[in-house]
Every structure is written in C-alpha cells, then in structure tokens.
C-alpha cells in the first residue's frame, strides 16, 4: 500500500478527513520550501501537494501564476523540487507528498528519469494538470512499477462514463475540481459539490479530495462533510505572497489559516 493510501485509510478508520494544502515549490524562495512543508505538517496537513512551477500555468488563476513566476525567478527546476522532497523526507516519513504541475517539465526530464528520481526522493503521487488518462499511456506503467500514485482530475463537466474510466486509472485519490474555473476562483457551490461527489463515490471506491474555492474553516468543513479530503491552495499561496519578506510572519499566517480548517474537519468526526 502506498503512503497516500495508508494515510487516507488511517484517517478513514478514525472517521477523519484529510487536509491537503498546496504550495508552490520555490515560492517565495527555494531555500524556504522544506521549512514551509514542515510548517504545513505542524498545522495539520496529512498530504502536501507541492506545486512544480511552470512558465505557462494555464489552469491557474493569478495567485498561483505569480507564485510560479516568483519561483522561476529563483530558477526553481523540477530537479530542485525533487531535492526539496528528499530533504523533507529526512525528517518526515509520514506525510504523503504529491507533486502537482504541468507535463512539459516532466517531458523535458524524460518520463523514466522523472519516475526514478521521484520515487527515490520520496514522492508518493503525481498530479499533472494537463495530462488526462488518454495521454498518460506511456507514463502510467512507469508510475505503477514504482508505486507512484497517479492522481487525476475530475471536473463538474466530467460525464459518468469518464468518471468510471478515469477512476480506473487513478490510485491514491481523485482530485475533484469543485467549480468551472481556474485556481483561486471564489464561487463555491457546496450543494452542487455534495451532489457531484456522491455521484463519484457511487461510481468508484477511490477516495475523493475536493479542491478549488476552499478558503476557510467554514468552506473546509462544508466540503469535508461530503468528501474524503479538502485541498487548499490559493489562499495559502496568497499569504505567502503577502508575507514573503518575513519568514516568521509567513509561517504563522500559514498556521493561522490551516489550524482552524484542521479543527473544523476534526469536529466533523466527533
């Protein structure tokens, strides 16, 4: 069983939901990323989605676009991101790590070299935004051989047939994109999410994490109630931007955002 699977299974046994924060690696500076990852864990993260910066993040709103630009100004490369994971792993072998990004940096490194390096670094899952399962035929067996979980997206526009097909290619969890839009969009419709996630649950046993539009304890709890985990990104990246010059303020702002979400999620269990 992969680390993602055991994390999610343990939570399920306790009736708890996963808290899955996202930050962009290299933002505000590559030297800070590992430290921030540990901060996320202290604030209650079960899984970390670590963004691999890309020059053309087509599915992202302005907040994460700017994070990518900051990270790339410091020359953050995929290889460096893998080094960060390796360093993080020397102190933490419990928290699952999912690399999230776009396909081209992976293509440039080569599928096999990337798969080997990701496994060796301690990466558990890979979410490639612009790689639907139809185009993942070459890379999927490489991930499978190494026990890396391929995380795919489902969207409000995904048909039932595709939900079934995508689930079959997924392990670890499925990322349900709660709304039509880019990351950082605000208009979360909780009833709609509840309906769609229950439809997904009826079609697959793979756990479902929900992202896009979760910004506070209230939205986290609302989404946590109907899913297996909540994914929080832009609101964290935004606070990184605002506090980029003061690392202590930055860390406490991350904790101040995540702790109430953790508590709200854990209240669902009791």
């Amino acid at each position: 069983m992969s680390r993602i699977q055991s994390v999610l299974q343990a939570l399920k046994g306790q009736g708890r939901k996963a808290l899955i924060p996202y930050i962009t690696a290299g933002d505000p500076h590559p030297d800070r990323t590992v430290e921030l990852m540990h901060t996320l864990v202290e604030a209650g993260a079960d899984i970390i989605e670590l963004g691999v910066p890309f020059s053309d993040p087509m599915a992202d709103g302005p907040v994460i676009q700017l994070a990518c630009e900051r990270a790339l100004e410091h020359g953050t490369s995929l290889r460096q991101v893998l080094e960060m994971v390796k360093t993080f792993r020397s102190r933490d072998d419990k928290t699952a790590i999912v690399l999230m990004g776009y396909l081209n940096p992976v293509e440039a490194m080569g599928y096999e070299a990337f798969s080997d390096a990701a496994k060796a670094a301690g990466v558990d899952g890979v979410l490639t935004v612009d790689l639907p399962p139809e185009e993942a035929e070459d890379v999927a067996p490489l991930f499978a051989e190494r026990g890396l979980d391929p995380i795919f997206l489902l969207a409000p526009t995904t048909t039932e047939d595709r939900i079934r097909a995508i689930s079959q290619h997924s392990s670890g969890y499925i990322y349900y994109v709660s709304l039509k839009g880019v990351t950082g969009s605000a208009q979360l419709d909780v009833d709609d999410v509840a309906e769609k996630v229950s439809r997904i649950h009826a079609l697959t046993s793979v756990p479902v994490g929900v992202g896009f539009g979760i910004r506070n304890a209230e939205t986290a709890a609302a989404v946590g109630r109907v899913s297996d985990g909540v994914i929080v990104g832009s609101v964290l990246v935004d606070t990184i931007a605002k506090n980029q010059d003061d690392i202590e303020a930055l860390k406490s702002s991350l904790v101040n955002l995540l702790k109430p979400m953790r508590e709200a999620l854990d209240e669902l269990a009791s």
């Binding site: 087509m58 599915a59 396909l103 935004v129 612009d130 790689l131 639907p132 139809e134 185009e135 795919f152 997206l153 489902l154 969207a155 409000p156 526009t157 995904t158 048909t159 595709r162 995508i166 994109v177 039509k180």
Partner: peptide, 20 residues
C-alpha cells in the same frame, strides 16, 4: 481518433475542457 499526427498533437488539457 485521438488527435495525433504521429507523435504530435493530442489533447493535453485539464479535465474541465475534455467534455467540450
């Protein structure tokens, strides 16, 4: 049928756009 010209082309987009 999947939009490939040899090794090129295809449909590399986020899931929201696939149905459209």
């Amino acid at each position: 049928t999947r939009g490939h010209f040899g090794a090129y082309g295809g449909r590399f987009v986020s899931e929201t756009l696939m149905d459209s």
